[in-house]
Design a protein around this nucleic acid. Structure first.
Lengths: 125, 125
DNA sequence: CGGTTACCCGTAGATCCGTACGGGTGTCGA
DNA sequence: TCGACACCCGTACGGATCTACGGGTAACCG
């Protein structure tokens, strides 16, 4: 059995209420796909850097984040594939910036708010 | 070589600017740890459900999310370990709710905003 | 009290993910 | 035109992560 082991919910009203408002599995998948892309130190800081300075090439990103170019290149590959980052080629240098349609809520709420949150969390055990 | 292949940045000013504002690798790790916990369809919907109805037991959660109890139990284990969910035992039923210190920004901005975002995104290819 | 319910834990197997490495393409300078 | 540079891609490997399963423990029900 994979879905339920009991078919007499303890609080049917709440179950129904939750069910009716819950995002579909499909929407959830789309959303977690996005979140997964931010749930990585390199990508998070990369996006954060681009949010600050508009545009950076791979080598400079590696310097700014203090990680390997490989790491940056791989991160950019994923973000580009997901349509979150755009590239502009100038000579032999490739500049990267956040896509025009980079989800604004993701940027405003998730990125900035949460980074700020983490900063404030010095009062920890 | 693992960190850089060139040591003459193309745009030193921007690199410096980004570097100075970037969250530390440590903060980033903490933050991505949190985001990872939400970057899973079961956990995201589970948290979303608890955000709506306050309190649910494992069996009812499985019903609401339409996933196995195992899945729910595992998700709850991780969230409990991370201190994001609290349990209350009443008889043989265990009720789960979001922890009092569940990061408010995570809840307000990330959870609600992003779910709303996904809902609005019907205008896709 | 013995059986059933509701749930938890530990473990093993499959799967996904990030990193490192080798090699390739296009561009610029001499 | 030749070499160096900036970057990209495909692949292989190690580690993390999710799922599924078997067993265990309280609590209620007769």
């Amino acid at each position: 059995m994979t879905v339920t082991d009991h078919d007499h919910p303890i609080d049917p009203a709440r179950v129904a209420h939750a069910r009716s408002r819950l995002p579909s599995a499909d929407d959830a998948a789309r959303l977690t796909g996005l979140l997964s892309l931010m749930a990585d130190p390199v990508r998070l800081r990369l996006i954060y850097a681009l949010d600050i300075v508009e545009e950076l090439c791979v080598g400079d990103l590696a310097l700014a984040l203090n990680v390997s170019e490989d790491s940056v290149s791989y991160a950019l590959r994923l973000l580009r594939t997901a349509g979150l980052v755009r590239t502009r080629k100038e000579g032999r240098v490739v500049f990267n910036r956040l896509a025009d349609d980079f989800p604004a809520p993701l940027r405003d709420h998730c990125l900035r708010q949460l980074v700020a949150l983490t900063r404030a969390e010095d009062v920890e055990d």
